[in-house]
């Protein structure tokens, strides 16, 4: 008995020093997220107008109310391309009189780049093109080529913007 007491104490000391092992229970879950293709275009104005002017004094008339703010939002595949185009529904018309749509030009700034272009009723013109998903904003300012040869009248055309992501 005198020898067992020290051994008992040793055992207790060992057990106390080691403590109880930490235990754990685990469980797995899988997260799935779907990201679908999506595109949205917004323009600050749905109408622009070119005020009348003397062709000698103002050979190129800037549209009112000025630059159009263009916001492009698009989701595309990795390495995909986002393209914004504009096309006219025909020439500017005033009754039987017409002015070619190509007499309207534009200049772009911001994410639309610094490119310039002209309207076409035959082929959609690229306003901007980007790679990858995201939001881009820029401005587009239109100009009208003012000539003495135009018949008087109020001319109108419709432009259609198309935003595509592929």
């Amino acid at each position: 008995m005198p020898r067992t007491v020290p051994l008992f104490l040793v055992v207790l000391v060992i057990v106390a020093a080691s403590g109880l092992p930490a235990i754990a229970q685990t469980s797995n879950a899988t997260l799935n997220a779907s990201v679908n293709g999506l595109a949205r275009l917004s323009l600050s104005s749905a109408a622009i107008s070119f005020p009348d002017a003397d062709p000698d004094a103002v050979p190129s008339i800037q549209a009112a109310p000025g630059a159009i703010n263009v916001t492009v939002k698009a989701r595309t595949l990795p390495g995909g391309t986002v393209t914004l185009t504009v096309v006219a529904n025909g020439p500017l018309r005033s009754g039987i009189d017409t002015i070619p749509a190509s007499n309207i030009t534009w200049g772009a700034t911001g994410a639309l780049g610094s490119a310039t272009g002209h309207l076409s009723a035959a082929v959609p013109q690229v306003v901007g093109s980007w790679s990858a998903s995201g939001i881009r904003t820029g401005t587009q300012t239109f100009f009208f080529r003012n000539l003495w040869s135009y018949a008087t009248g109020t001319y109108t055309l419709t432009m259609t913007y198309t935003l595509s992501a592929a």
């Binding site: 779907s34 990201v35 999506l38 939001i135």
Partner: peptide, 26 residues
């Protein structure tokens, strides 16, 4: 309830990942 911050900058696709729940004591 898990929530994903949605963004226009994400590329399209079906994303996946595993998460590990662990209950421990002490």
């Amino acid at each position: 309830t898990f929530r994903l911050a949605n963004s226009w900058t994400y590329s399209t696709g079906t994303y996946t990942q595993t998460v590990l729940f662990t209950l421990t004591a002490p």
